[in-house]
Design a protein around this nucleic acid. Structure first.
Lengths: 340, 340
DNA sequence: CTGTTAGCGCTTTCAT
DNA sequence: ATGAAAGCGCTAACAG
């Protein structure tokens, strides 16, 4: 069986290729009945619409939108926050009839599919400068989420403010010894404490903004010491537990853990349980993100809900609307639950 | 600035287009130094390799692999099991330099990107027959995961066997009144109990296979009644809680909950806590899947670990190797923890 | 409303 | 080792 192309179909039907093309792309350019006839015959011959590649080559469009992830695909897909964001974007794209391409932002990756999408949502600070450069060069619409890039619109939250708010809430409720379980504060792949000179950093990373918020809130009672601030390289349970164990086996033990993600906080809760500590009596814990799992943990986690799905929806809508110059700051909410 | 194409580049360099093309695609066809020179100049002019669309039109390849999801994108991306699978696939594709396209299998979607991929992993029973037909027609390599389609290779687990095993374990440990919290057993979008005539169904859905396993194991003690089997339409906390609440407020109350997913089991644990029931003293619960959250729930969940990430890795490797005729059955393990 | 035609940017014989 | 040219399947401008 020869391949069914638009041209072959046209010949078979005794009409011109333009007419068949119009039947698919510009219904107003031919009579309704001819169109119907063409569509029916196409179906019958197993022609499922114009070849996407050829169409894309011709028009320069692909009806695909890419999410340029700052981490590897597998990490991004399993991180609950990235996941919620992807979910929100997916909802909007699906409604708009667009497809979604997930692009790994891992260093040194040069994927050929990069060239296809009609637009990009850049999620998190890009780690692959060449790739970013290529994407910028493409001249296609771009939008940043959870990062800021000169000249590119963005959707963010005020990390400093909400970190400040939740830290202040926790501290006011009951003063005590504070430790910070921080995510990706420095460039190291192992769990460790910060050194004094690493306490401040010009870097715009969201974790730095959160740290500044904690620091500012803590200051009102007592300056926070670098050695009570942990760096955790990856946002997962494993590393979170290592850090939590280090922090909670000190003497005297901290009585408040400021965690930069809910996953970290959840890891800390496990460790606390292993150590026989009661939350919130012996130890209070707050998280950041507002992932679903944090609602149903035991005890339920006090945290900042940042609505990543909504962030995704808004970003996707902005991109599709060509509204890519604005810098949007989305509100969050404190979720005061049982852990603090 | 005019667009930089391979042709323009060739003219600029004073060589033919074929030579430039070869510099990118067939290093052995030209001298190493000329190649190096061409590549350097390309970089300098901001030419980031041959246009992917044109190349794809010409060669018929795209270096993309699609996952054809049986649900909507947003659901699949947030379901922990689908998520782990995607993660496993992503790992392998990334190493192979392939990109991953997530395709929604929602009814009536006809995405243009469908035509692009070089191969498809079909995840779960397709709900969009036209789409499936198109994909089959494409003649590209296909592989099923968690479903079986005539003439297509597959990667599955033995749902019947492991459902049987975990039910038998639970029942032997301590007999009692059993309720099943089942996932998508019938075609209804609300939580409800099964009716007697719905107890058996020829349908090959994995939930049906699991139910048969439970039923067979229960039979050894006492036949399971349809009214103790709940249908839950969506694998999330919300619906799980509704079903669990119905099941646990009966008199007499069930003492064992056989849950068809870990998410459902986790929802049931929340409800039990709300009702002041102690697990496993007053109520025993088992799940299915082996998601991460089940390890760290309180109490930790007894379940069947099905290694979805490994399933994904294996499927991706098989597809890439062109090994798409086999029907692979992967082993699972019982994870005996505190909830039963 | 319909048909003809020129490319979109590339790869790949085939000839040199 | 290199170049000329055909054509992948389609869309859109233009002519009729």
């Amino acid at each position: 069986m020869p391949k069914v192309t638009l041209k072959a179909l046209a010949k078979h039907l005794g009409v011109s290729v333009a007419t068949v093309s119009n039947a698919f792309n510009r219904p107003d350019q031919l009579s309704a009945e001819l169109r119907k006839h063409i569509l029916q015959e196409s179906e019958k011959l197993g022609f499922s619409g114009p070849n996407a590649t050829a169409r894309s080559l011709r028009t320069g469009r692909s009806d695909m939108i890419a999410i340029l992830l700052s981490d590897t695909l597998e990490y991004s897909v399993s991180d609950p926050v990235a996941n919620q964001l992807i979910k929100g974007i997916a909802e909007v794209l699906q409604d708009a009839g667009k497809d979604m391409l997930l692009l790994s932002g891992a260093k040194a990756v040069h994927s050929t599919a990069e060239a296809l999408p009609d637009g990009f949502i850049i999620y998190g600070s890009p780690k692959n400068p060449e790739q970013l450069e290529r994407v910028k060069q493409s001249g296609k619409p771009l939008l940043c989420v959870d990062c800021n890039l000169r000249g590119i619109g963005s959707v963010n939250i005020d990390n400093y403010q909400y970190a400040y708010d939740i830290a202040e809430y926790a501290l006011q409720k009951q003063p005590g010894k504070v430790a910070v379980l921080g995510l990706r504060l420095i460039d190291s792949d192992r769990v460790c404490r910060l050194q004094q000179h690493e306490l401040y950093d010009a870097n715009e990373a969201i974790s730095r903004r959160r740290l500044e918020g904690y620091l500012a809130a803590a200051k009102q009672q007592r300056e926070l010491n670098a050695e009570q601030i942990w760096h955790i390289p990856v946002n997962n349970h494993h590393y979170a537990q290592i850090a939590a164990r280090e922090a909670l086996t000190q003497h005297p033990r901290p009585t408040l853990l400021l965690c930069m993600s809910d996953r970290i906080a959840l890891g800390a809760i496990s460790v606390a349980r292993q150590l026989g500590l009661n939350i919130p009596q012996d130890l209070r814990i707050v998280g950041f993100d507002g992932i679903e799992e944090a609602e149903r943990s035991y005890p339920a986690l006090t945290t900042v809900a940042q609505h990543s799905d909504e962030k995704g929806r808004i970003a996707a809508r902005m991109l599709l609307a060509g509204d890519t110059a604005e810098n949007v700051l989305l509100p969050c909410e404190l979720r005061l639950r049982d852990s603090c």
